[in-house]
């Protein structure tokens, strides 16, 4: 059982994920350069936060064409678990593995703070550990996290029970307060908050642990 973290030029949370999964949780993890295509032996893949390819054109737009992501599409179709955090979420929407798009925050600020999140659905294993409490606190750090989608897509997300997390106090103007969504099958989760930054008691909070633990559950 092991986890892969895809590293793009400009990723800057890949080491944080590695520290959280391997250092804090003891889950075997290896980093995968974006030019690699071999995802064999992996059970889960994380797309980390950062500014892949400088976020030129649009966030995640160029990362979508990385060789590793061609393999990721197959990996996902075969039921592999995929977690996209922040820029990773943006990449998943550009890639079409999740619907919608992430756009410039309503008030144009880069927002770096802890946010309260409501667990909307515990349909998937990603959030089952949180369902009893119903909410959690995680840090966000983004300038382009305003989730946007058409009304039809929103309805589809609601019908599929695919809205995973909502902001308690919407910081960026996201449609329907959406902070994270899953695909219909439930093996892909994309979210703007950073669970990997809430795993080590030394740096504040361990509420992200259960979400990363779910990578291999």
């Amino acid at each position: 059982m092991s986890i892969g973290v895809i590293v793009f030029p400009g990723s800057n949370c890949d080491r944080d994920v590695l520290w959280a999964t391997q250092g804090c949780l003891g889950l075997p993890t290896r980093r995968i350069w974006h030019e690699e295509t071999d995802l064999s032996g992996l059970d889960a893949v994380v797309l980390p936060g950062g500014f892949s390819y400088g976020d030129y054109l649009r966030c995640g737009a160029i990362a979508r064409f990385a060789p590793a992501l061609r393999s990721l599409v197959e990996f996902t179709a075969e039921g592999g678990r995929v977690l996209g955090i922040c820029n990773g979420f943006q990449v998943l929407t550009e890639l079409g593995l999740l619907p919608g798009a992430l756009t410039r925050n309503r008030d144009l600020h880069f927002i770096c703070e802890d946010v309260n999140l409501t667990v909307v659905s515990a349909r998937t294993t990603w959030l089952q550990n949180y369902s009893a409490k119903g909410h959690l606190t995680l840090p966000i750090a983004h300038g382009e996290g305003r989730y946007q989608c058409s009304e039809d897509t929103l309805k589809q997300l609601q019908d599929d029970d695919a809205i995973a997390l909502r902001y308690g106090n919407n910081p960026n103007g996201s449609v329907d307060d959406i902070a994270g969504i899953t695909n219909p099958k439930g093996n892909v989760l994309g979210l703007m908050p950073h669970p990997e930054r809430a795993c080590d008691p030394a740096t504040g909070g361990v509420e992200g642990r259960a979400m990363l633990q779910a990578l291999l559950n």
Partner: peptide, 13 residues
């Protein structure tokens, strides 16, 4: 162009 239905905060600023 951003679609008309999408808020353009940079344009507003």
């Amino acid at each position: 162009r951003l679609r008309p239905s999408v808020l353009d905060p940079a344009g507003e600023a």
